[in-house]
Amino acid sequence: MKKLFLLSCTALFIMSCGESKKADSTQPEIDYSTATDSNEAEATPAVATNNHIVLKAGDDMRFDKTDFTVKAGEEVTLIFMNSGEMSKEAMGHNFVLLKPGSDASAFASDAVSAKATDYIPTDLQNEIIAHTKLLGGKENDQIKFTLEPGTYDFLCSFPGHYGSMNGKITAVK
């Protein structure tokens, strides 16, 4: 008897938790996914920005993220982590942020011959906004920089990595 009573109570409880609609409701149902504000045509869509970036790279020769949006005119903190296991001589990674108008592919080609400076060509310093040191497995580095509105290329300048290790940072007002 107790089991029957408990089962009946449980069934009533489950049925009462379901979705309920009033059959005699006179208000129309609103589809919020298509509803618009009357001022929406004038509004600029909000862009999510984050001026604190954590970027990882590993032995698979890939950045874990390749696109970022930051707030222009405010300091950006970037923490770069090599999550791999290999040494920096075998699979080193860095983060190099280039000025607008720089040719990232040409920079990467020149970087191949800059082993003495951890693949940061001294004759191309004027094209660099910021860069980390070259990291081996389980190492990390932190840099800070501020950007004007625009789009900026970044890359890993270790030989052969540019093709799969590059991305963009967009700075918005």
Rank of each mutant, 00 (worst) to 15 (best):
T69L: 00
S38G: 01
D24P: 06
E42P: 04
V54Y: 08
T34Y: 01
E19T: 14
A35Y: 01
L78H: 08
M15V: 14
A23D: 11
E29W: 04
G18N: 13
A46T: 15
A43F: 07
G18L: 13
A72P: 00
F68A: 04
C17D: 02
T36M: 15
M61C: 00
S38E: 09
S8A: 13
F13H: 03
T69F: 02
I30L: 14
S33R: 08
A72H: 02
E75Y: 04
D64Y: 08
V54E: 07
K21S: 15
A11Y: 06
S38K: 13
G73D: 01
T77W: 00
I53F: 03
C17P: 01
D31N: 13
M61A: 06
S33D: 10
E42T: 08
T36S: 12
D37Y: 11
T66R: 08
F13S: 14
D64M: 10
D67W: 09
T66F: 02
T10A: 15
T66N: 14
T10L: 15
R62A: 11
V70R: 05
A41L: 11
I30H: 12
V47Q: 12
E19I: 15
V54R: 06
G58A: 05
K71R: 04
K65A: 09
C9T: 14
E74R: 01
F13C: 13
Y32P: 02
A46H: 10
E42L: 12
R62T: 07
V76Q: 07
P28Q: 11
L55T: 02
N51V: 07
D59Y: 07
T26L: 08
T34V: 13
T69C: 05
A41I: 12
H52C: 05
P45F: 12
A23R: 11
K22G: 04
S20E: 02
D24I: 07
S38F: 08
T66Q: 09
G73P: 00
S20C: 05
F63K: 01
M15I: 15
A43N: 09
P28W: 11
K65I: 04
C17I: 01
A46G: 05
T34H: 04
E75A: 09
T44H: 10
G18R: 11
D37M: 14
L55Q: 06
K56Q: 10
V70Y: 03
C17R: 06
K21H: 11
E29K: 12
L78Y: 04
F63A: 06
K21R: 13
A41N: 09
T49D: 08
A48R: 09
A41Q: 02
E29I: 14
P45L: 12
T36Y: 07
K71H: 05
D60M: 01
A41E: 13
A41M: 06
A57V: 02
Q27K: 12
K22V: 01
D59C: 09
T77R: 08
D59P: 02
G18Y: 07
L78V: 06
T10S: 14
S8N: 05
T26Y: 00
G73S: 07
A72Y: 05
F13V: 14
A72T: 02
E40N: 09
T77D: 03
A57F: 01
A41K: 12
N51F: 06
A57R: 03
K56T: 04
V76E: 01
L55I: 00
E74I: 00
D59H: 06
T10E: 01
E19M: 15
D60T: 10
D24K: 11
Q27E: 14
T26V: 12
S8V: 15
